[in-house]
């Protein structure tokens, strides 16, 4: 694993954070927005070695925590687990585009549910919101739509050479 790919991964996460907090969150439908940072972590974790992938997830989460008002470590915890889940399952799902889509939705759903549950345990009151089910189901669906662009773009940026790998 070259250091260059890790640096590119970090730069992509930084870009995703800026776009998430300024653009993506404003394009909310039914009060729910896609999670570009989560998606970027999934996309990068598909292409990086396991350890850098997990560290990248943690870094993305901790930066988002520092920029928001949620307890420091909440998103770091969730994105670390999301990166790890991606690393552990990527070989099984990356056989066709539908299975990949299913995996992205599943991992994004797992991450969103984890964010809501752990956030509630740490005083965020997320599960008290009457609209939480809508948020939990729609968020990953939007992520799946955004994945059509983000996954190939991140694969390209991280220097994947094989055409089939880039497509998937």
């Amino acid at each position: 694993m070259s250091g260059r790919r890790i640096l590119v991964g970090l730069a992509l996460v930084g870009l995703a954070i800026v776009l998430q907090t300024t653009l993506v969150v404003r394009v909310s439908i039914y009060g729910v927005a896609a999670d570009l940072v989560l998606l970027t972590v999934i996309a990068a974790a598909r292409r990086l070695d396991p350890e850098p992938a997990v560290l990248l997830g943690f870094t993305a989460g901790i930066i988002l925590d520092l920029l928001g008002t949620a307890p420091l470590g909440l998103r770091a915890l969730v994105y670390t687990i999301v990166a790890y889940a991606t690393v552990r399952t990527r070989d099984r799902f990356e056989v066709a585009i539908p299975t990949l889509g299913l995996a992205v939705y599943g991992i994004a759903l797992m991450g969103t549910v984890l964010l809501a549950v752990v956030g509630t345990l740490f005083g965020e009151g997320t599960l008290r919101d009457p609209g939480v089910v809508r948020q939990l189901l729609l968020g990953p669906a939007y992520d799946l739509v955004l994945a059509l662009v983000v996954l190939p773009a991140v694969s390209w940026a991280l220097g994947t050479t094989r055409r089939r790998e880039a497509l998937l």
């Binding site: 396991p50 997990v54 989460g61 470590g73 909440l74 687990i81 790890y84």
Partner: peptide, 22 residues
């Protein structure tokens, strides 16, 4: 490599919980 990633995950999860508590 996979085992090291699992160890790293456990460490980072613990760090996250400690950070939230602090």
């Amino acid at each position: 490599t996979s085992d090291r990633a699992t160890s790293l995950l456990i460490i980072l999860v613990i760090v996250s919980f400690v950070a939230m508590t602090i």
